[in-house]
């Protein structure tokens, strides 16, 4: 079994981790605006547009719908931001980590399942039909992507013989997991897109339901929910690095820099995909999730465990 070489840093470094996460989230939003502006031929609104949107939402008043369950609504909206912070706690930045849990992979899974509740709460709490439909749409998507995601998470854990995130990264010194478990990697990214309510999985926020879960949010409520989505996307991309992309491994640069570079690369691909893919309709994707992704993920786990046993 590979040795853990991670150093757990004092809790005070959480401030830095938070800043890094927010920077990554801003990068994702900025890249998305830049791509949008280019595709649409907008006269204005490139890389800095997220800053302007933030200013706009900070200036905008909050609103509540008549008889809305504001507590649930706000828990849902702000919870997205909180959840993404919890997720990055177990992601090692090169050699350092904030929390070296021996069940780090399960922790990631736990937090991503929380999103089910958060998105649904935000949709339900608004007391608006659009939000309600959006919230339930997300659950339908969740039913389709969550199980394949769980099985995809198990694949690196089998190969590393550990649920510790650092062990998974350390077990890839010869060959990155992405090379011999590509199916798990792709399904993992599908899951990340799913729990970030991003791109193909943004049916809960779709144009066809006038924004769905976001339809009634304004001001800072909207800001935290949107920021939370980008932060989750960034956290998911960052988690793929120790799990599939060899962690900090790489020539010349220090380990933390490689983690950053790989995270940004994965994040950029996820952001770019949004404009290219249609929104997966929940009713159609359910079948894909169960009939294609789930067996594929199980088969991947089988292959991985056979290889592991064979190499003994």
């Amino acid at each position: 079994m590979p040795e853990t070489v991670l150093t757990t840093v004092p809790a005070g470094w959480a401030a830095l981790a938070g800043i890094v996460l927010c920077t990554l989230a801003f990068f994702a939003a900025a890249l998305d605006s830049a791509l949008s502006a280019r595709a649409e031929g907008a006269g204005r609104g490139g890389w800095l547009a997220p800053a302007w949107s933030t200013a706009r939402l900070l200036r905008q008043r909050r609103r509540t719908v008549v008889a809305a369950d504001t507590l649930l609504l706000r828990v849902g909206a702000a919870g997205m931001l909180v959840g993404s912070f919890l997720m990055v706690a177990v992601i090692p930045l090169g050699r350092w980590t904030l929390a070296d849990l021996d069940v780090g992979v399960v922790w990631f899974n736990t937090v991503d399942v929380m999103v089910w509740a958060l998105v649904w709460l935000a949709g339900w709490g608004a007391n608006s039909v659009h939000g309600l439909v959006g919230g339930y749409r997300f659950l339908a998507h969740g039913l389709a992507y969550e199980l394949p995601l769980m099985f995809a998470l198990v694949a690196p854990a089998i190969a590393a013989g550990s649920l510790r995130v650092g062990d998974a990264a350390g077990a890839q010194d010869r060959l990155w997991f992405v090379v011999w478990m590509p199916v798990a990697f792709v399904i993992f990214l599908v899951g990340v897109t799913g729990f970030s309510v991003w791109g193909p999985f943004a049916a809960a926020l779709g144009a066809d339901v006038a924004g769905g879960v976001l339809a009634e949010l304004s001001g800072v409520d909207r800001l935290v929910m949107q920021a939370g989505r980008y932060a989750f996307l960034a956290a998911g991309a960052a988690f793929s690095v120790p799990l599939f992309l060899g962690g900090g491994a790489g020539p010349f640069l220090p380990e933390w820099a490689w983690v950053a570079v790989k995270t940004v690369a994965v994040l950029a691909v996820l952001v770019w995909l949004r404009r290219k893919l249609p929104v997966f309709r929940p009713d159609r994707f359910l079948e894909i999730g169960w009939v294609v992704l789930l067996p594929a993920a199980v088969a991947q786990d089988l292959v991985v465990s056979l290889v592991v046993v064979w190499k003994g």
């Binding site: 502006a37 907008a42 706009r56 659009h130 006038a210 924004g211 339809a215 949010l217």
Partner: peptide
Amino acid sequence: MLRRGWRPAWTPGDAD
């Protein structure tokens, strides 16, 4: 609107 970088809002809640 697009030329100014302004975007359409889908609901009144998001509109200025």
